[in-house]
Every structure is written in C-alpha cells, then in structure tokens.
Design a protein around this nucleic acid. Structure first.
Lengths: 343, 343
DNA sequence: CTGAAAGCGCTAACAG
DNA sequence: CTGTTAGCGCTTTCAG
C-alpha cells in the first residue's frame, strides 16, 4: 500500500459526483441519485449500471449536500458538562453506540456546567444537528433554546415544566437508600459532600439524603451539607470543610463520583481511616472504587444504559414520533462494599 | 420564560434566510450575505440595516448551506479508540478547547482499537469534516484513508512511513526511566503488563522497558512480558498470568492507565502487597493513583496538552500550511510515589 | 420507471 | 460598494 501524506493544496482531484456517475451509467442524474440514495424506484437493470459506475468512480456521497437538500443532517449534538467526567464519557459511549447503528454521528461539546457556555454551544451547532442530547446546567434556558428548533432529550437531569424526553435515574431513592444503609450501620451524624444543588440530579440526591434522615427522626443540621464545584478538587474542599467540624460527622454521603474521590482524598489527608473513623458512601460507581482499601460502597447507576436509552428516545423522535414527553427513570443499585463499616 | 416542548412536526415555522434579511433590509441578497458573513465589503450604512433586519428576524446562518457553498465545514473528526478511556477523554477535551476557539466543532467516533471500525468511522464522516485527529489502530490503512482527502494529525501514536503531523510523548524514554527507577530500587526481575504491541505507543514503551533492562545487563526473559486487551480487564488478566509465575517477578511495569488498574487489581486479589511484595510503576497518571495506598508511581504524560497541540497542528493545516510533516514529542515525567518501594 | 427542472441556503465570481 | 448570476451536490416534485 502506498502511504501518501496529507492531501496537498494542488492535488485535490475532484471527487466523483452523482452527475459523473449518471453520465458513466448512461442514465439521468435523478435516476443515479435514486439508485445511490436508495429512495424512489429504479429498475434493477438501471440500478446495476449505476452501482457499477459508482464503484468504478469510487463515488462517495457528499453528506453535506445531502443534508442541505433533504434537511436531514443525520447528526445529533451531545452537550455535556465535561467529557472528562467518566460518567459523561460512559454515557457518551452508550449514546454513540446506538445512534451510530442508525447511521447518525455525534457532534460533541462541553458546557463546563456553565449556562452561558451551554447556550453558546447550542447556538453554535444548532443548524447542523437534527437533535440534541444534553445534560442541562442549572437553568432551563439552554434546554428551551435547543427545544426551539430541534428534538431534544435530557440526560441525567430533568427540568421542571419543560415537556421533553428525559433519562434519569432514581436519584432521590438511590440517595435515600445509601443514607439508610449508613443509618442501619449505626451512624447518626451524616454529612453530605455535594456539588451544586442547582444541578437537578444533585438536588434530588440531596432530597433523598434529607428524607432518609428525617424518617429516622434525626434533626436537620444544614451545616452538615457541604457544597463544592463539580470536580474532584471541589469535592476535596467541601469534604475538608465538613471534616473540620467538631464533633466529627460519623459518616459522609457524596453525591457524585468526583465528590466521592474528593472526599476520599480529604479523609486520607486528615489522617482519618475510612470506615473506622468515618464511613463513606458515594453516588455513582467508578473503576477505582474497588481498587482502594477499603473498597467504596456506592450507589451504582446504569450509566451506559442511560446513554443508550437517550439514543433510543432521540432516534424515535427523529423518526417522527410526537408521543407525549417521556421520563425514563432507571433504577440504581446500592453496592455494598466496606467503606461504610461493617454491621 | 415560556418553556415549550420539542419542536413538533407541524409547527416548523420557516427560519429566516439571507434572502429574507436582504428583502427586509432593502438590499440585494449578496450584500446581505456579505454583511452577515463578514466577507467582501459593505458600506457602514448597509451593514447596519442588514444587521438590524437580521436581528429583527432572529436570523441564524445555516452552517450546512455555508459548508456546501464554501467547502469549509468547520468541523474536525476525532477518532479515538475509546472515549471512556480517561486518556482519550482528556485529550479530546484539550483538542475541543482549541478547535472551538477557532470556531470549529468536533465530530466524535470510537474505533474500539479495531482497524475495521476505524476505517468505517472515517468513511462515515469523511465528507463532513475538514480534517481528522486520530489515534490510529494497529495498521496504517485508516490513517492513509483519512489522509487521502483530508488533513490529518495523529494523536498518541505515530505511523512509520506516513508523512503526517503527529503528536506523541517520549514513550521509550519515559518507559525506560520508569524501569530504571525500578532497577535503582534494587528490583531485577521486572515484568511488563502491556496491551497490544501493535499499538504504536505500547510498542515504544516496551522498547524502552527492554532497553533499560538490557543496559542494566539483565538477560531478556520474553515470558516476563504479558499482553492483554486495552481494558482494565485485559490488564488484570495479563497481570494475573504474570503473577502466577515462579519465582514471582519483583516488579511490574504497566504500559497504560488501564493496564495499571488491572495490575493493581490482580495484585490485590492475589493477596500481594504493593511495594512490599511487588513493586509497580505505571505509564500515564490517573485520578485514583493517589487515592490508593500506597499511591502509584507513574510516568505522567501531558495529556490535555497533547490534545491541544493536535488542535493547533490541524488548525494550521486547515489554514493552508503545507509545511513538512511535524512530529511533536512531548516530554513525560516520572512521578515517584510509593508503589515501587522506597530506597 | 425515468427524465427535466427546481430548489435547499449560502458563497463567490463578475460586472458595474 | 453593490447587484447579478452561477453554482456547491444532492433531493424532490412533476410530467411523461
């Protein structure tokens, strides 16, 4: 095989177009286009000739032209807070897998958990996509903007009052379950290491946390929930603050993978021992949860499945469904390991 | 703010086009297009009228039409083995940040470390992108295909004989450094937990590993390098195999983040103690490397920087540069923690 | 089933 | 500086 370098300016020999194929096949452009595009009807004989001509010219349909003419861009925009977050990476993967099977591709953008950037990203790719999958930041304006001209499905976070397909997990129930587990192990003063409650899923998780405490008859102690940025560093800071209080909380509930990591770091740095000195349960499972000692008890969510489901929903919409908005809530699972202490 | 649902079939009110804007502004379509597109020259007076009309009609340029007419798609295709790999996620992030500043967006695809899928992905998005950034699988055919009609820059892995811009790190030197560190700590029988040597970067890292041993006068023991898939599971299996040998290797060098994670898991499961029973150094730093005890000594690579650099290179090419292919090799850094044992 | 012709919405000469 | 005129490559009526 020859290994040419990059296509240089000069040598850009024109690529074959439908017109070229038609000419070589001896049919009209329309017929060639029909055979190539797989629409309309073409006699078997004509189809053969066209297909032969096409392969002889190594014809490749121009997707941009196709999109302009037909209006179908076969592209869906994915806007997440941060692809570097394994949660979003895994969801992106699931989504990617399903849309690809339908011949769609993914346009990716990061919003950095920032509504301005989210809106900017939407504006920037709006005309190139048929639909959006997004995990909306704090307010609804981005999602509303996206929904204005495209189909949209919300991932991981809902938006009250916006009637749009949504894929989430049972955040409140999962969090509640986690805290009940802590409670069952005898812990009473349970702190929460959380990112912004403006994030819908975080808000729900905090709600579950509070519900569990309330049900157990434990008085509300607002200073036991510590808020940080949605990064490991943010989790570290929030946890450090919490662990500075006296008396020390007996247990911590972390609302996301990054918050969990930050909490572990803070606990380590303060010379505390996980489980023995302080119990921990995190929301969202991670690769490293079982690599550390003791392994971390977590609320596992079906992340890839969330992405896949979002893909199915958006594909249905693009196929023309105008069914009422669907809210898919996937179940979570408490995976008991040893960071919360043993019974 | 009103929160409408998804755009429904019927209500798709036409969006304003340049023609509409021109009409309202009372100028020709061309003038409107010029004012809107920011090219050619337009009198200040005309520009104002056009811009006013545009905002009155909330005109949004149609990028697809623009791409077809101009040939510039303002999109670059990113093809990585797997976005779920934090290495690629971080590189994607760096890349995304720079191309976005230039008004470009990213089309994402996963190749799963599989040349067929890589080629399919390239074919699938070929006509929609101006260039590709890809981390090529085993053979050169994908990269060659991409380079045929687009600009391409290779990320993380080079390809011998293909004259294309490439961003890598000093893989051999980094690996060598890691193994020398192990050697310096007194370890002699050093195993390698590696993914496929068909992957260019892995091959280089293995080369560095061997060079270090050779220099130290340690006889080559081919059965000390164990190969697995490029996943944590693959690393686990490869490491488990290695740790089944007697005498037990004294140390392990893992060629990637996933291989390192797999090695840690295998070590744990066999009841071995990191550092005490077996030393470990991994290539590529991770979030959790300092979360586990002992923290893992690693060869850190400037991952985001790699993505950014790739972005700069591709942007230069798209700007028309026809400079000879550049091979950027970023430096790595041995971050000594405690998994290799202490002096 | 097939061809002719009209766009999709924009950029890009080319005159003036 | 501005208008006119062609397309970009494909899909989509509309006749036949």
């Amino acid at each position: 095989m020859s290994l040419p370098g990059n296509a240089r300016e000069g040598e850009s020999r024109r690529v074959a177009t439908v017109r070229d194929v038609a000419q070589r096949a001896g049919v009209s452009q329309a017929t060639a286009a029909r055979a190539l595009g797989g629409y309309g009807s073409v006699s078997e004989r004509a189809r053969r000739r066209v297909l032969d001509a096409a392969s002889a010219l190594s014809y490749q349909p121009n997707d941009v032209a196709r999109a302009l003419a037909s209006g179908a861009k076969r592209t869906i925009g994915l806007i997440v807070a941060d692809v570097e977050n394994p949660f979003f990476a895994a969801a992106a993967r699931g989504l990617s897998d399903v849309v690809e099977t339908h011949g769609y591709t993914l346009l990716l953008a990061n919003s950095d958990e920032n509504i301005e950037r989210e809106r900017a990203a939407i504006e920037a790719i709006r005309t190139r996509v048929d639909g959006f999958v997004l995990s909306p930041s704090s307010d609804a304006s981005g999602a509303a903007l996206a929904a204005q001209h495209s189909q949209v499905v919300l991932l991981d976070r809902g938006i009250r009052g916006l009637s749009v397909d949504t894929v989430t997990v049972e955040n409140a129930a999962g969090a509640r379950r986690a805290v009940e587990h802590l409670l069952g192990l005898g812990h009473r003063r349970i702190g929460a290491v959380a990112d912004s409650p403006d994030i819908h899923s975080t808000e729900q998780r905090l709600r579950g946390y509070r519900a569990a405490l309330r049900t157990a008859g434990i008085p509300d102690e607002p200073e036991l929930v510590s808020i940080g940025d949605s990064t490991q560093q943010g989790g570290y800071e929030a946890a450090t603050r919490l662990l500075g209080r006296r008396p020390l909380p007996e247990a911590l509930f972390a609302t996301s993978n990054f918050m969990t990591a930050g909490a572990v770091r803070a606990i380590r740095e303060l010379g505390l021992r996980l489980a023995r000195d302080i119990a921990l349960v995190g929301f969202d499972d991670t690769d490293w949860a079982t690599l550390i000692e003791p392994p971390i008890t977590v609320v596992r969510q079906p992340v890839a499945e969330m992405g896949r489901k979002a893909g199915e929903l958006i594909m249905e919409r693009l196929r023309g469904s105008s069914a009422p908005a669907r809210r898919v809530r996937l179940r979570t699972e408490l995976v008991i390991r040893r960071s919360a202490g043993e019974p």
